[in-house]
Amino acid sequence: MTQFITAFFSGSAHGAIYALVSMGLVLVWRGAGVVNFAQMGQAMFTTYIASQLIMHKSSYWIAFVIALLAGAILGAIVDFGLMRPLSARKNSALLNSESMRTTIPVIASLGVLGILKALAGIIWAGEERGFPSPVSTNGIKIGTTTLAFTAFDLFVIGVVLITLLLTTVFFTRTGMGLAMRASALNPEVTRLSGIRIKSVRTLSWAISGVASSLAGLLITPSTNLSPNTLDLLLIVGFTAAVIGGLTSLVGAVVGGFAIGYVISFVNVYSSPENVFLAILIFLMLMLFLRPQGIFGTKEVRRV
């Protein structure tokens, strides 16, 4: 029973972070039609910035806010400097078919990932370092028993729930959010009704940058920070997004928690070595049984 509770708690806390990563992926996929494999590279880079600030005696919260801002800027730069010029060339020989129009941006985002990792290596020597958490990471005590649940875990779940609430309000109650939903649904009609879909796209990249930067800040206290530590998080976030259907934010969150429980139960009841295989099997099963995801809609191909 204690094993079960341990697995459940750590699954909830990690699942919340996976949900953030997954939301970041969904935002860019819906807003710009790209699965951004550089996302956790961006998060790694902004977490290094935060870590650098903290090392130079800045308070955690100032570093926290600056890292989120840097995430937004980095996301916008990727769109502005790479994805926009790329979509301007969509009629070139290499990009004039549907299959290549989805494949080439993936390769481009991998290029961004490589560049960010190399830059982090050049600037910060690429060595592993710890990252602080704002609250205690010791188990909460009730009487004499120590739970496998920490104040930091509570903090993580709280932050993720607030983020979810804010994005929901943004998408349902604000004009800009409405414009983003419209442009995801039908870019051409949205453009014709006077909305600048290019700016809307850049905004999706920026918001996704913030979400992934947040995920980086929340996961590194338990994993440490190095140019490669967040690679695993991308895979997990991607699997979560696929479970949720890749287009639904609610699906992304549900998928994030689902994969969080899968991983922590495999960790507790089997062994950490089997985590990758479990993710792979889970992803494959999902793709075979329900490729459109739990909350996705089946794509209909018109001729």
């Binding site: 790209v34 299959s99 890749l246 990758f276 993710i279």
Partner: peptide, 13 residues
């Protein structure tokens, strides 16, 4: 059964 990004992600896993 998979296209573009799904295929990329699955093969990455």
């Amino acid at each position: 059964r998979l296209t573009g990004p799904y295929l990329a992600g699955t093969t990455l896993v």
